[in-house]
């Protein structure tokens, strides 16, 4: 506790408390009492967390083969993986989301898609959001994983080979865990960034927490208070993610080679 309460921290905490107190005293918060907004806010928070989690998991599952292909794959796998990462990382995520949602959507009218069994699913917005956000994660983390796979000391892999370990077992037990271990802090940071990318899907009718705040602002003409609440919610979720990754890091042994 003594080490935590440094003078600069005390000043910052006091400033934060003053800002919160000012917002509570002078702001207009009556909308927080309305049950229709409470339900929307809770649903929105859940949707933001859900989108972040699902797209990070799906994206990482894609990023591992993409990173591996780039790190050690033959050229006919490495080249497409490299091109994919370049395109995803070189274009705005908002554009990718819109191309998927409105671009694909404009191709549907009058085709077999609208009569197929998949249409009730493809009609909704969330599948496009999940796909776009996951592809984005795959692109960025594919690059991260490329470095991670290359960074595992060669001696580790050769030792495993010398012991007669099969290739897949070597990958599962030696290579992947050590690679993931190295980039865990990076992935933690990218998860926070991913959380803050989710508001982009509010533009394709998904009512996550950012869209909910926008809705409240437009309904009530109260400009700043919903944004203030939004900031607190995002900081809380981001804090949760940071703590989770700290815990994960503390559980994994840090010795390499």
């Amino acid at each position: 506790m003594q080490s935590f309460l440094k003078p600069h921290r005390i000043v910052l905490i006091a400033l934060a408390l003053a800002a919160v107190a000012a917002a509570v005293v002078w702001g207009r918060w009556e909308w927080l009492g309305e049950s229709k907004y409470q339900i929307l806010i809770l649903k929105g928070i859940w949707l933001s967390i859900w989108l972040t989690t699902v797209t990070m998991v799906v994206g990482m599952c894609l990023a591992i083969p993409i990173g591996l292909a780039q790190a050690v794959g033959p050229w006919y796998l490495a080249l497409p993986a490299r091109i994919y990462c370049t395109i995803i990382r070189g274009t705005p995520l908002l554009m990718q989301i819109w191309l998927l949602y409105y671009g694909l959507g404009s191709l549907f009218p009058g085709t077999w898609v609208q009569k197929s069994d998949l249409w009730p699913l493809l009609r909704q917005a969330w599948p496009y959001a999940v796909v776009a956000l996951s592809l984005s994660v795959a692109g960025y983390e594919g690059e991260v994983m490329r470095g991670a796979f290359r960074g595992v000391p060669h001696g580790q892999l050769e030792a495993a080979k010398a012991m007669g370990m099969p290739r897949f077992t070597l990958f599962r037990r030696i290579w992947l865990p050590q690679a993931l271990n190295r980039v865990l802090p990076t992935i933690g940071g990218e998860t926070v960034l991913q959380l803050k990318s989710t508001p982009l899907v509010s533009t394709i009718t998904i009512m996550e927490i950012y869209a909910v705040a926008g809705r409240i602002r437009q309904d009530t003409f109260i400009v700043y208070e919903p944004l203030f609440l939004l900031a607190i919610i995002y900081m809380a979720i981001a804090g949760l993610i940071v703590f989770m990754f700290r815990w994960l890091e503390s559980r994994t042994p840090q010795r390499t080679a």
Partner: peptide
């Protein structure tokens, strides 16, 4: 479903969503 612009509503209606 609510949209930021009428153009987007038109597109989603045309797409059958």
């Amino acid at each position: 479903k609510t949209y930021q612009t009428q153009d987007e509503v038109n597109q989603d209606l045309a797409a059958g969503r």
